[in-house]
């Protein structure tokens, strides 16, 4: 591939070093995507000072570029229909996730989160987890999110508080998140059967911690028609104890929530007054 003219050539960097770089290789694309992500997040996130419409639009543009770079670095599935579906639901999930964290109004953030959940449910369906896709919608969007909205309406029914209009360390946080994503992407991109020993894809036996005595069950076809029934069998067979533990945990969480609420109703005047500093600010 011929090197394209780089704007960096005008800078004092040696051209020879840059000319050897494959500008469309996945690594470079990824680096560009991560940088764009950091800048766009920083631009879009609400922050102190003048936040003009221009900077927000620039941020949205950069975000779109980031998405394009992500799509470019993605791996081809070989099946165009499948690819299109996965791309669509992934885009829904990612865009609405970004909107969740950048939207100033908490209520809108919650609604964006609901959309994100539907995207995630789609991704899960594409990945063959039908039960989980449905369960995510039901449990999250149907139960948890509604609870969040209840709390929001209880506490902050209208308008935006000052704390919704600014954010905490937006630049540093955006860079940190982008760097994390870059690191994760690097390791994901390296996943292949012929990678060096350090980062070779684990076999199923290794992943499930098999020993010489117990070989893991053979791979099952997750897409079989009775997969939900088999998931249930797995859940209440191999993981029965964990299921029971989770049940107890739910009960404890229920009792704990009630206990905390009823304790808090009595009110601790001294403690409350000591915290008036925050209220008066």
């Amino acid at each position: 591939m011929t090197p394209i003219a780089s704007p960096f050539t005008t800078v004092s960097l040696p051209t020879a070093a840059l000319s050897g770089i494959d500008w469309l290789s996945p690594g470079v694309l990824l680096a560009a995507a991560v940088t764009c992500l950091a800048v766009s997040l920083w631009l879009v996130l609400p922050k102190a000072g003048r936040s003009g419409t221009f900077s927000r639009r620039l941020g949205l543009l950069l975000g779109a570029i980031t998405l394009g770079l992500f799509i470019a670095t993605g791996h081809r599935l070989g099946n165009l229909g499948e690819e299109a579906v996965l791309l669509t639901v992934s885009l829904v999930a990612v865009i609405s996730a970004a909107a969740t964290i950048t939207c100033r109004s908490p209520v809108y953030a919650a609604i964006w989160f609901a959309l994100c959940l539907s995207g995630v449910a789609g991704v899960l369906l594409v990945l063959g987890a039908q039960f989980l896709g449905v369960a995510t919608i039901v449990v999250y969007a149907g139960a948890i999110l509604v609870m969040f909205l209840f709390v929001l309406m209880l506490a902050q029914p209208s308008g935006l508080t000052t704390s919704d209009r600014i954010t905490n360390e937006p630049l540093l946080s955006a860079v940190a998140g982008a760097v994390l994503l870059g690191l994760l992407s690097l390791s994901i991109g390296r996943l292949s059967a012929d990678a060096p020993a350090c980062c070779r894809l684990p076999t199923k036996a290794a992943a499930l911690g098999a020993t010489a005595e117990s070989t893991p069950a053979a791979s099952v076809d997750l897409l079989a028609a009775d997969q939900v029934a088999r998931l249930g069998g797995e859940l209440f067979g191999r993981h029965l104890v964990a299921v029971e533990a989770i049940g107890i945990l739910l009960l404890i969480a229920l009792i704990g929530a009630i206990a905390i609420v009823s304790h808090g109703l009595e009110g601790d005047q001294a403690e409350t007054s000591s915290l008036q500093e925050g209220r008066q600010a």
Partner: peptide, 17 residues
């Protein structure tokens, strides 16, 4: 500010990675 603590933790984790 709890979020600054969290940020410090994240930066530390990234450095370790």
């Amino acid at each position: 500010m709890v979020q600054r603590y969290a940020l410090a933790g994240v930066i530390g984790v990234l450095a370790i990675i």
